[in-house]
Nucleic acid binder design. Structure first.
Lengths: 117, 117
DNA sequence: ACCACTAGCTAGCAAGACTGAATAGCGGCT
DNA sequence: AGCCGCTATTCAGTCTTGCTAGCTAGTGGT
């Protein structure tokens, strides 16, 4: 997997990915990073996620709550708010549009499910 | 469609889109821009495409030929070469990986079964 | 005291798309 | 001739975003 390529592709999409994670349940930066890495985005680092979360907060898409932790410094738990949900659904509209255009240009094999049907 | 969002998403993917267009047939910048705009990427402008083509050339992924035109200055016709083909297939591997990860995170409705050819 | 793990933050860099303009060639119109 | 519109390319400067490479802070174990 070409890392440089993935880095460039993540520009603009990482934001939606993180918002989607927050749509499932509130989470804090360290946790989100770990989740991303587990889910295959193995090169995403903490610094990137923290900076992204700050931007999301500044734009009013998430709410923040400081929660003390038994194992370290207090956590900043982020949760998606109403504006965030709205923004996220717009995000997915844009993403779906892009995926469709690219699908037209470069058809991918249909997922192996349409076999006999 | 949020323009800012699309702009960010295109980072990294526009390159592959243009390479894919060149894989179909050689083309020059002005032509490619027009094609993109027709195909739904309505905000992509000439300047962006020209800069991208220069990068592709510098990286040796495309060959260039200057062709005189009856309607204006000579065209710089770009065509995908061997290295470009190789690079493009790697590009799609990365793209497919990203799409799969995102699909896991945010399942999209299955497309209404497409009549294949 | 030192280390490891958890948790957050930041300055500076690199890459890529957009803005807005300039340049150049050709044909048609007045 | 002069001007406009379409074709065609280029470029400087701006903005956003992810990465690099550190740093700070809290807790517990050796």
């Amino acid at each position: 997997m070409n890392k440089q390529q993935m880095t460039e592709m993540l520009k603009g999409t990482l934001e939606g990915i993180v918002l989607e994670i927050l749509a499932t349940q509130p989470a804090y930066g360290y946790e989100i990073t770990a989740q991303l890495r587990e889910q295959g985005f193995s090169d995403v680092v903490e610094g990137t996620v923290y900076a992204l979360l700050v931007r999301l907060e500044r734009r009013g898409l998430v709410d923040v709550e400081k929660v003390p932790s038994a194992k370290g410094p207090p956590r900043k738990v982020y949760s998606l708010n109403g504006r965030g949900e709205e923004y996220l659904s717009g995000f997915w509209r844009t993403w779906d549009f892009l995926v469709e255009r690219i699908q037209q240009l470069h058809p991918r094999k249909e997922h192996p499910q349409e076999e006999g049907q």
